[in-house]
Design a protein around this nucleic acid. Structure first.
Lengths: 230, 230
DNA sequence: TAGATTGTTAATCGATTAACAATC
DNA sequence: TAGATTGTTAATCGATTAACAATC
């Protein structure tokens, strides 16, 4: 088996998750007119170690030049290809509350190859209302969006209590990639991939570390007591 | 050293990151009037394996009853305590664009022990404008917020190009926990913790898997060719 | 050629999993 | 006591890191 096929087979999840960061850093270099970078420079810009970067890139193939570094444009292209970003991906956002509207207005999607082709809500009263350039469509339109517009990715921006229902809708319409902003676990078939974004979870993780910080004095006091007990 | 102190010392990062999910599932059980759960039930609700759940909980202490399970209220309390959620955490959101406004309006914060005490923007034209119950404050207020209101967590909701400046501001004001929604790496001192939420990254990871799915036919064709070449 | 930097190897580390003794 | 389920152990797996041979 060629190295190329081996590489394309199994890029570790942890590596895949870092590729977007490398791509972003490369884009910054390109914008600053920098044509070539070393693993050390790129790693620093992406916030990882150079060893990790090189290991990650080695899963894609061998696109650097020893003694020189990586050509920014070339590496950007290779990572984009690996991530499947040479094509545009049609995206639908479901749930037009505050968050859904903010996501629909977010310009960062388009610049990264994601096209918001539709916004939907299950609330009939909202259907037809304008959100930016879109009009809110009913959930029943999902099937047509998958069939006619190759919709492949659904973004759930509803409250937790309707997220599962929306997910079921997406799955039965044929969507197999879901980005879930609702703070709940979704039950989907094995071949459907769900990624979750949860701000409350992130804040709670920060709180854990913040608490540990302020609790450090107490802990050291406790271990002193134990030292005595020993 | 007692098991208790050992537990409090080093809860693995991966376990900490799952605790909020367990807490959420427990809250759901409590709302449904369920007073006791097994590791199997709780794990299913949280979307993990029961072995992983028990291992995670073992880092907190021993709060289950063999042959019976876990008392929902008790375990909720213990996880809340471990995460530092017995107190309310004052939070400030910086950057009052679409996303910042959506986050400020998000009710999920308050219910989980996070209090948005201020919203800020570096744009002088926005300062003073109303956002829900808040008025937008200038960046210069950060110091006072840390001093007088115990602000400990900052949420950056600005575009990427001003995120580093905002981070520097937060750090010099004394904030050491940052949730970053801007798609960029922040350079902060070692004792400052940054967590990042990036929807574009998540979509790109979904795109990778979506592409692999549709590319599967080509790959199997290729390995057939290789089989012949062998 | 000498200097630099990649791509890879091997060692280490941490996380996951399965299995089961402990015990309610 | 018998049945059930926890908490822990030990094995496995995957990810990270350091070091360096390959090579531009």
């Amino acid at each position: 088996m060629s190295a190329d096929v081996a590489a394309r087979r199994g890029i570790p999840d942890a590596s895949v998750a870092r590729l977007p960061g490398y791509l972003q850093a490369l884009t910054n270099f390109a914008e600053r007119g920098i044509g070539s970078v070393s693993s050390e420079e790129l790693a620093t810009a992406a916030g990882v170690s150079s060893a990790k970067l090189r290991k990650d890139l080695s899963h894609l193939g061998s696109y650097g030049v020893r003694g020189v570094g990586y050509e920014v444009d070339r590496l950007s292209y290779e990572i984009s290809t690996a991530l499947g970003l040479t094509q545009d991906w049609p995206v639908a956002i479901i749930g037009m509350g505050n968050l859904g509207r903010a996501l629909a207005a977010y310009s960062g999607f388009a610049t990264r190859g994601f096209n918001v082709i539709a916004v939907l809500d299950r609330d009939a009263d909202l259907v037809g209302a304008a959100v930016g350039e879109h009009r809110i469509r009913p959930m029943g339109d999902l099937g047509a969006l998958v069939r006619d517009d190759r919709l492949a990715i659904g973004v759930i921006a509803t409250p937790a209590d309707s997220a599962q229902e929306v997910a079921d809708h997406l799955v039965s319409a044929g969507v197999r990639s879901i980005l879930n902003f609702a703070p709940c676990v979704l039950d989907v078939p094995d071949d459907v991939m769900v990624r979750k974004v949860d701000m409350s979870t992130e804040l709670q993780i920060l709180a854990f570390h913040e608490q540990r910080r302020t609790g450090e004095l107490d802990l050291s006091a406790q271990s002193t007591v134990e030292g005595v007990a020993l």
